[in-house]
């Protein structure tokens, strides 16, 4: 086990982290601004990946594919918001959970209907294939490095958007006072559709980029969605900053845990049971982390404190 191997795993963790951020940002925005829990967010991730695969298949251009993933996910998001989600804002969380769970069934089965049950594969475009040499003699795939850069750029852009632009300020105002913002003459319905579509587009892009290095298949969004929930619980619901910190913590912990734990157990056990115990424990690691955060800070790292438990 060398330092470069660990550095490589750290980069992989970072890459998972920024992808998780793209997923969590939309979820946490939608919750923070509209008070809605959206289980179907993973479907938007899947739609982005399938749109990319379909367009790359038809045109051969990866860049058109990425653009299509953004457009398709945003369009699907806006459509669902207008047709279904909008009616759920005032409802209790139980209704929101059930309706968005039902939407998952619709999206998953719909995509299976159109594309069939077999996974699709996307190739990394030639210009991005290969590895780059990083300081310290690390060879790292260019495409993965690019994912990290794009993710971090998007995170920075989102922070600027929320804190500096007029729309961003309206979003933050809507979060604190719905009536006030409506009284100022802002079209709150359009604002909500926009926020929802924005979150969807980020999820769709993440789906396309991750789909390129893994595979594009029905149900690919669900594990990511649950990881995003863990991220949000750790970071604090409604906080973009919390989503970023939480995503990086979860991404790195998960990746490093899967890499290191079997090795660590190998020091005290025979190899096959070390792999078994290590990988079983690694699969639980981020949930244990979440439990710890809940014990120490029930509102999440950057969340508002919860009312005193009585």
């Amino acid at each position: 086990m060398s330092a470069t191997l660990i550095a490589e795993q750290l980069l992989n963790g970072l890459q998972l982290g920024v992808m998780l951020f793209l997923m969590s940002a939309g979820l946490t925005l939608v919750f923070g601004v509209m008070g809605l829990i959206n289980l179907a967010h993973g479907s938007l991730y899947m739609i982005g990946a399938f749109a990319c695969a379909a367009v790359v298949g038809a045109t051969g251009s990866y860049w058109l594919g990425l653009a299509a993933s953004l457009a398709a996910a945003a369009a699907a998001g806006a459509l669902v918001e207008i047709v279904v989600i909008r009616r759920l804002y005032g409802r209790d969380h139980l209704d929101q959970v059930l309706a968005t769970f039902a939407l998952i069934l619709v999206f998953s089965e719909g995509v299976r209907w159109i594309f069939g049950a077999f996974p699709l594969y996307l190739d990394v475009p030639e210009s991005l294939a290969g590895a780059v040499s990083l300081p310290g003699g690390i060879q790292y795939p260019l495409y993965r490095l690019l994912i990290i850069v794009v993710g971090l750029l998007l995170a920075a852009g989102l922070f600027l958007f929320i804190s500096r632009t007029r729309i961003g300020i309206r979003i933050r105002a809507g979060e604190s006072d719905r009536e006030m913002i409506a009284a100022l003459g802002v079209d709150i319905d359009r604002l909500y559709t926009l926020v929802f579509a924005l979150g969807a587009a980020m999820a769709g892009l993440a789906g396309a980029m991750v789909g390129t290095i893994q595979s594009v298949e029905v149900g690919m969004g669900e594990p990511v969605l649950i990881l995003a929930f863990v991220v949000i619980v750790i970071g604090g619901i409604g906080s973009i900053r919390g989503a970023l910190v939480g995503a990086l913590i979860v991404g790195i912990t998960d990746t490093i845990g899967r890499f290191l734990l079997p090795i660590l157990f190998g020091l005290v056990m025979d190899p096959s049971s070390a792999t078994a115990v290590g990988s079983a424990l690694a699969s639980m690691l981020i949930y244990i982390l979440m439990a710890l955060v809940l014990i120490l800070k029930p509102g999440g790292l950057y969340g508002r404190p919860l009312p005193l438990r009585s």
Binding site: F229, V233, Y287, M290, L306
Partner: peptide
């Protein structure tokens, strides 16, 4: 220890 959406997400997780 939590409630609302937190509770939903945590039980799921």
């Amino acid at each position: 220890r939590t409630s609302g959406v937190y509770f939903i997400m945590i039980t799921l997780a």
